[in-house]
């Protein structure tokens, strides 16, 4: 009797653990299934090469490029902010700050990632954009620049926290050896700790990139939701995520081409995120072999 109960409990717990895999299968499955009908209307060539994305207009065009350029641009700006800030902060916390202070500072820094994204959207639209307009007078009220910068600030803790974990895990005898031959803390940090923690730092960057690619509300609020094939950050544009929000706000009949278009957009986003994750895994593998 007791043995039976143990078996049943183990099975139930296993099902719970396996359900997390079902979530992934569900996401991929639904995105693929709902996207397939879209390609009965639109050829893959049109989808990948057309330079306009206007699925909801009468004269609908289905080129993903404008959404990709918007996504690419915001992500690059966000990373230009987050990677230097996050990495330097991590090195500072790991090599210069006393452990007691680190215990206090790290959770405070992580609060930056806890702020709801819609609040960041407010901040980008009504604080950062007016501030930037004082420096760049012809900046449009909706623009990619301020959205990108704010997303960058938002993902600083993802980058810094995980990087710091990786740097903290570097064995201290490596540091001591470096100090013993007369290296300064900065030299130790750049030539010993960061290379040794490279694998962990890469995963921190990859998580940061995934966050930036998938960030929705900041761009939907501050970047203007207009698909725009441009690499000029002072103009409004739309990302893949912003387009999905824009369409979802309206009333969209199930099965219409507009409905299918958000799934195609979502699938593209997922594929893009997956590519970066695989690239990160490859980078880590390659570096680990070298050691």
């Amino acid at each position: 009797m007791r043995r039976l109960k143990e078996r049943v409990i183990e099975t139930v717990l296993f099902l719970a653990a396996a359900s997390s895999v079902l979530v992934t299968i569900g996401i991929v499955g639904i995105l693929v299934v709902e996207s397939i009908p879209f390609f009965e209307h639109v050829t893959l060539k049109e989808f990948l090469t057309d330079t306009e994305w206007t699925p909801l207009f009468e004269n609908a065009r289905y080129g993903i490029l404008p959404l990709l350029s918007g996504t690419f641009l915001t992500t690059v700006i966000a990373l230009l902010v987050a990677i230097p800030l996050g990495t330097v902060t991590a090195a500072f916390l790991s090599e210069y700050v006393r452990p007691a202070w680190r215990e206090v500072l790290k959770p405070i820094l992580e609060l930056l990632a806890a702020v709801p994204t819609v609040v960041y959207g407010y901040f980008a639209l009504l604080f950062v954009t007016p501030l930037l307009q004082k420096i760049i007078p012809d900046l449009s009220g909706f623009n990619v620049l301020s959205a990108g910068i704010v997303i960058g600030m938002m993902i600083v803790p993802y980058v810094s926290s995980l990087s710091e974990d990786a740097m903290g895990a570097v064995p201290s005898h490596l540091r001591e050896a470096s100090f013993a031959v007369g290296a300064s803390r900065m030299q130790t940090s750049f030539r010993v700790v960061i290379p040794a923690a490279f694998s962990g730092i890469t995963s921190a960057y990859i998580l940061g990139i995934s966050r930036a690619l998938g960030e929705t509300m900041v761009v939907a609020i501050a970047a203007g939701m207009q698909p725009n094939l441009t690499l000029n950050p002072t103009e409004p544009a739309a990302t893949i995520t912003a387009f999905i929000v824009q369409v979802s706000l309206g009333d969209l009949p199930h099965g219409s081409i507009g409905y299918q278009s958000i799934y195609v957009a979502g699938l593209s986003l997922l594929v893009l995120t997956l590519c970066f994750n695989i690239f990160g895994l490859w980078l880590r593998k390659k570096f680990q072999e070298k050691e």
């Binding site: 639904i30 995105l31 995934s210 929705t216 958000i262 986003l269 997922l270």
Partner: peptide
């Protein structure tokens, strides 16, 4: 991997499913 999946795709999955 789930940590890296954009949250909006959860929404799309929920809408369909």
């Amino acid at each position: 991997n789930l940590a890296g999946i954009p949250s909006i795709t959860y929404g799309l999955m929920a809408l369909g499913l």
